[in-house]
Amino acid sequence: MTALTLENLTLAYNRHPVVHHVSGAFRRGSSTAIVGPNGAGKSTLLKAIVGLISPNHGRVRFDGIKRDDVAYLPQQANIERGFPVSVLDVVLLGASGRAGWFGGVKAADRDRALAALERVGLSGFAERSIGALSSGQFQRVLFARILVQDAQLILLDEPFTAIDARTTHDLLHIVEHWKQEGRTVIAVLHDFEQVRNHFSHALLLAKECVAWGDCHDVLTHDNLRRANAMAEYWLADAAVCHRDEEVTQA
């Protein structure tokens, strides 16, 4: 059963595509790592899935998942770290989908938030201000917020960049747990060992989809070499892409 389908998706900045005619499906309950060189369109793809940018062509289709059932952790969260809120407040934001704009936070949400903090190893941090956290601790807080969000589809953009080994280990444990609970996880990652050990599927992206499927079939030496060669450049005088018309004519 699919959770999310990409239909001939093209995403472009200034008409230059960063994701070019990508099609395929994410199975429900699967965990997919999106890998590929810098500039391959990995983050752009996640942004399109959550609706932060709109496709130039093709579309993203959700199957049986509602828009508000999606949790998204951006690469560099555009969060004001000096903002005067406590750790608990940030984690409780995960419950704002249920509380709505005006509803109060229920005791159950509070308990859930405290439990989430304990699971990410930050029990006792609830009342601290977020300005006092290290980046590793802050990433744990954002994971706790996702735990409270209780989303069916979880998108993580390079969640372990600049995070130490122990924190990465703890957070990967949570990702494993999401898989067991049948949630769909899509994460942009760079560490192939991590991908092989913790993810069932991989999507190798280099503007175009180089390979998509079982981790071990995707992360081959050949595929990676091809991906690196493809993503390096874009042409200033690139011609207009007519691929779709060719497909319909054929």
Binding site: G51, N78, V85
Partner: peptide, 19 residues
């Protein structure tokens, strides 16, 4: 709530509620 969340983490508000 939307006013404060929008000042603190605008992306979260856009993704979570589109508001």
């Amino acid at each position: 709530r939307p006013l404060v969340v929008e000042s603190f983490d605008p992306e979260f508000l856009r993704v979570a509620s589109g508001g």
